[in-house]
Design a protein around this nucleic acid. Structure first.
Length: 564
RNA sequence: UGGGGUGUGGUGUAAUUGGUAACACAGCAGUUUCUGGUACUGUCAUUCGGGGUUCGAGUCCCUGCACCCCAGCCA
């Protein structure tokens, strides 16, 4: 199978567009993009796609991609998000050099340009309230009504606008509007608001400004100031493009006007990515925080153990199109498995322990059970990772799932009278078992074949199953958190219209009695290892007393059970 | 309701720009295997519906249909 970084990257319409621009010399062969998050939340998997597209296109054509914070709305923005976004970006593999850019750095230029529009008779101050303005905008197919202030003289507009800036008007008492066309079929062009009055503290400009530009007035102009050529954004801005172009056409730009191109945002099954919903999950305590391993945030995925490279490869692979779609989260998981299969060290851990006693196990001179060390590969996919020694003795734990008193067809694991292999150790055969009052198996007795030491039978006989195990006397205790989809429905909210109706109440199962092989005591925070036959598990930030299941292994037995 | 956008297998993305549907995931059937993992092999669509142009259409034309976006002083 081709390694992820060798997988063919399909072309896409954005790349084709840039190539065409370069051939026609539209931007003089220059390519510049930008990634423009608003600092009011943390980055999530959807941003990861935008990031790989924005940075990827720039890199591919030897251009630059700047990180620019779109901090035009002080109501919700905060420096802590700025720092968080920069950190997440670096983790994903896109460290920024030097200082990031901010739309707020251009407030003065934006203001000057606004006065220019007023002077040209293309903008006016409107003192009507929001509801009135909204009502006058009309509706789809319905006429708009012009504001009574629409035709006030330039001087009056200028005077009013300067007073807005000076803080002489109260919050919400006036706005600056572009004078375009109240009958336009594109609602975005029905005299959009350019500035609103806000009396709140801005995370960078403090109390300097009383007025703040809207997204539409700030974004294209910021692109132009920076020399962006290809302004890539998501589909919902399609109807804003006409406005983007209109503003730019009225201004004396230092560069050729940038051009906006929209593509579909990334949606995943069983996942929500709207900031509002993610914030609510945190606020309601449904999850532990923005970095809860169940969150689709970059910090959540990171804590869960998702390798940044796997996320990048996934984003590169899914392509860029204009089709609204939702990718199966299984595809992302397959990229995670592919990467982890190559890189994760193998270890043995028993999540739900069942005690097994080897009744014919030898004792030493002191009458203690003999302890043998068996050698196991750290990663069969990568011999360079070497081997480790694991203690084996007469009492050990296996997975409760790995023994059945009455095995169904196709069940290959341990059951009375059946012989299986303990990975790297011995062939054992079950001779008996004990149950508690409820009929649960609480102990299994086995006999071992000394000839099979190391895991192979000299007579060449085969067993159907190889199982993992952990010596009881040497086991390290740990807690393991198993995760399932946060939302049980493929499309959260599809049935009822409310995503939270589809919350999976069992998205986390915490197992406190897990038994680990000794080597795991040295696992580093954040390290991801494979628990053999179970899946990949990430060491918690606080150390190996807690593991998070990143993703399970593909499970043929589970499929067989599902079918019957 | 006006405008804009999008329809290719179960899912997502391709198709040398009119030349006989590719890749991945999922599924199914096998091979290999000291992980029921990995790896490998095979199998799984005629391109939203209906017309038309053409030797030839996923690509062009006509006509329906479905879904998404736009009426924040959010981005």
């Amino acid at each position: 199978m081709p390694r992820p970084d060798e997988l063919p990257t399909a072309t896409n319409f954005v790349r084709e567009l840039v190539i065409a621009d370069n051939e026609s010399g539209t931007f003089g062969g220059r390519v510049q993009t930008r990634f423009p998050p608003e600092p009011n939340g943390y980055l999530h998997i959807g941003h990861a796609k935008a990031i790989t597209v924005d940075f990827g296109i720039a890199a591919e054509f030897d251009g630059v991609c700047n990180l620019r914070f779109d901090d035009t709305n002080p109501d919700t923005e905060d420096t802590s998000y700025v720092d968080g976004i920069i950190a997440d970006l670096a983790w994903l593999g896109f460290p920024i050099e030097g200082e990031p850019l901010y739309a707020s750095d251009y407030f003065e230029q934006l203001y000057d340009w606004a006065e220019l529009l007023i002077t040209k008779g293309l903008a006016y101050v409107d003192e009507q309230d929001g509801e009135t303005i909204s009502a006058q905008r009309g509706g789809y197919g319905n006429a708009g009504i012009e504001s009574p202030h629409r035709s006030r003289p330039v001087d009056e507009n200028l005077d009013l606008f300067r007073k807005m800036r000076a803080g002489e008007f109260g919050e919400g008492s006036a706005v600056l509007r572009a004078k375009i066309d109240m009958q336009h079929e594109n609602m975005q062009l029905r005299d959009p608001v350019m500035y609103r009055i806000r009396g709140v503290h801005h995370h960078r400009t403090g109390a300097l400004w009383n007025i703040y530009p809207t997204y539409d007035w700030a974004h294209g102009q910021s692109d132009a100031i920076e020399g962006v050529t290809h302004s890539l954004c998501t589909l919902e801005f399609d109807s804003h493009r006409a406005l983007y172009d209109w503003y730019l056409a009225q201004l004396p730009l230092p560069f050729e006007a940038p051009r906006q191109t929209e593509f579909a945002r990334l949606e995943l099954t069983h996942t929500v990515t709207s900031k509002r919903r993610l914030a609510k999950l945190v606020e309601d305590g449904t999850v532990d925080g923005w970095d809860d391993p169940r969150m689709p945030t970059l910090r959540g995925l990171r804590r869960r153990g998702y390798p940044a490279s796997a996320i990048r490869e996934f984003c590169n692979f899914i392509g860029v199109s204009r089709t609204n779609s939702r990718h199966q989260i299984e595809l992302l998981e397959s990229f995670v498995r592919t990467e982890l299969n190559r890189t994760a060290l193998r270890r043995m851990a028993v999540l739900r322990p069942l005690k097994v006693v080897v009744t014919d196990w030898p004792t030493d001179a002191a009458g203690e059970p003999v302890v043998e060390m068996v050698e196991l590969a750290n990663n069969p996919e990568n011999p360079d990772d070497g081997t480790r020694m694991v203690p084996f003795s007469g009492v050990f734990h296996i997975e409760q799932d790995d023994f059945m008193a009455e095995p169904p067809p196709k069940y290959f694991r341990l059951s009375p009278g059946r012989e299986v292999r303990l990975r790297g150790a011995y062939f054992v055969t079950a001779t008996g078992f004990d149950t508690d009052g409820d009929g649960n198996v609480v102990e299994v007795q086995v006999v071992h074949d000394p000839e099979t030491r190391g895991g192979n039978a000299p007579d060449g006989r085969k067993v159907k199953s190889t199982m993992h195990w952990v010596s009881a006397a040497h086991a390290v205790d740990a807690t393991v958190a198993l995760y399932d989809r946060l939302f049980s429905a493929e499309i959260p909210g599809e049935a009822t219209g409310e995503a939270f109706d589809d919350l999976n109440a069992d998205s986390r199962e915490v197992l406190t009695g897990a038994k680990l092989e000794p080597a795991l005591a040295d696992a580093r925070p954040g390290q991801v290892v494979q628990f053999e036959r179970l899946g990949y598990f990430a060491v918690d930030t606080d150390g190996p007393a807690l593991f998070h299941r990143t993703v399970g292994l593909r499970d043929e037995w589970a499929n067989i059970q599902k079918r019957s």
